[in-house]
Design a protein around this nucleic acid. Structure first.
Length: 420
RNA sequence: GCGGGCGUAGCUCAGUUGGUUAGAGCGCUAGGUUGUGGUCCUUGAGGUCGUGGGUUCGAGACCCAUCGUUCGCCCCA
């Protein structure tokens, strides 16, 4: 008889397990996120991982890389194309419309969960990764942009990395500003198109604005003397952006204007921004977002303005220290002749009092004590047959080695005294 | 999708110009000494040398492919 076929026990490329401290790290960042968004009155909006393909192809723009080559697509049994969501906003807009939330504006929605992009994995870039994000619909004013930015700042502050990160903002203007600028940019670059990088020559046709944030030196050269979007802003767009900057200054949020922040997804207008961390190399963007006033309409809804952002949780993990895990406080070690489940009953007492408690009933005493010491568990409770009958226990303080004979009730009181 | 580095026990790594039964530390196992742990001593288990081909009398070491990982590009969070 041959055994079962050997499984490849590696996770799928670009996907990973979060075990122990890493799992705690991931969860702690998500917990901090929910704490902050609830302080801003945001409502959780958790949507499916799978959506119909049209949800994304309609919203993100056919020319974006995310759409054109990074989506995980599959057919369901009825032959309909489905997509594992590559980002959060499109699904939120779909949910907004599905649930008729647009009839009760403004709406503040928050989400957290895994996203999927078929990319070449590297540090800070996974095929399944986690994002936390917020979307704010129904308010077109720069004040809404500022509130969203304020929330992002508070979140990064809560996470502990606001000081190591820089907020860069820019404006893409309204559609009018943008198309005027686009024409001028094409006019400037077309005569020197042959000097551009291959990617940028392609972009010149599809999405010329993206040439602005190319890292290619040749492109930088070609851009010298290029028109600036600033000069093409309509008075309204200019006023919107100035107001956003004013808000940031009033609220004490440090920022810098970077005309090269243009964003990859097509739905952005007006304000765009990125929080960038210094120590993460090429994947240094921790959190990014902006205003997307045309998106809801593009997806078949009313003409609703929106602004929001998303943060990459794995990148936040790279930029922060692992949390201090609240470890186990008490381990109960019963002798073999202890009445059945007396140890678990005791453990319940401790848990009810808020102490993380485990029961170790097997193995040599020496081994169990050694393990308790290795894991820095501060309290060990020994119980035997006599304890079970009398309702008592022996509590050992691992730090000092002191032991106390106590009743169950006294033990809880004692632990509370030690803890406080 | 493109280019470069890496891939030896659970972890961190040694393995000389290819040569017999692949090593160390930590961890794990069992035991001894510390009253029931953190010290010390002893014992044991655990490796298809990422995988598959090839060169060779002989490959962990060389070649090819492949998978994974990592860095840069690209993209983006």
């Amino acid at each position: 008889m041959t055994g079962p076929e050997r499984l490849d026990l590696q996770p799928v490329r670009g996907m990973r397990d979060y075990v122990g401290i890493e799992g705690a790290h991931l969860l702690s960042l998500i917990t901090l996120f929910w704490e902050q968004v609830s302080l801003f009155g945001y409502t959780p909006c958790l949507t499916p991982l799978l959506e119909e393909a049209g949800v994304f192809s309609r919203s993100l723009g056919e020319t974006s890389d995310v759409i054109s080559k990074e989506m995980y697509t599959l057919l369901d049994r009825g032959g309909d194309p489905l997509v594992l969501r590559p980002e959060g906003t499109a699904g939120i807009v779909r949910a907004l419309l599905s649930n008729r939330l647009h009839q009760d504006m403004p709406a503040h929605l928050a989400y957290a969960g895994p996203m999927f992009r078929y990319e070449r994995p590297q540090k800070g870039r996974l095929r399944q990764f986690h994002q936390v994000g917020v979307e704010h619909f129904g308010e077109a004013s720069p004040e809404a942009d500022v509130e969203s930015l304020l929330l992002s700042w508070r979140y990064l502050t809560a996470v502990g990395i606001a000081e190591d990160s820089r907020l860069q903002i820019n404006t893409l203007g309204d559609p009018e500003s943008r198309s005027a600028f686009r024409c001028a940019l094409i006019q400037h670059l077309t005569p020197v198109a042959h000097t551009l990088s291959a990617d940028s020559q392609r972009r010149l046709q599809t999405n010329p604005l993206r040439i602005l944030d190319s890292k290619d030196p040749a492109d930088h050269q070609a851009l010298i003397g290029a028109p600036a979007l600033q000069d093409f802003l309509t008075p309204e767009a200019r006023a919107h952006f100035d107001r956003v900057c004013e808000g940031l200054r009033v609220l004490g949020i440090p920022f810098e204007i970077n005309p090269r922040i243009v964003r990859g997804l097509d739905y952005y207008v007006h304000t765009t921004f990125e929080w960038v961390h210094g120590g993460l190399g090429a994947q240094g963007t921790l959190l990014a977002g902006g205003r997307y006033d045309g998106l809801v309409k593009t997806m078949g809804g009313p003409d609703l303005p929106g602004v929001g952002w998303a943060a990459g949780v794995e990148r936040l993990m790279l930029a922060t220290l692992s949390p201090h895990i609240q470890g186990v406080s008490v381990v109960v070690i019963p002798e073999e002749d202890t009445p059945s489940f007396y140890a678990q009953a005791l453990a319940q007492d401790f848990r009810n009092a808020g102490f993380s408690t485990v029961v170790w009933a097997e193995g040599s005493l020496k081994k169990r004590l050694k393990k308790a010491a290795q894991r820095s568990i501060p309290h060990v409770v020994f119980v035997g047959q006599a304890d079970g009958d009398a309702g008592t226990l022996t509590l050992k303080m691992m730090a000092t080695g002191d032991q106390h004979q106590l009743s169950r009730a006294a033990a809880v009181t004692f632990l509370k005294g030690v803890a406080s």
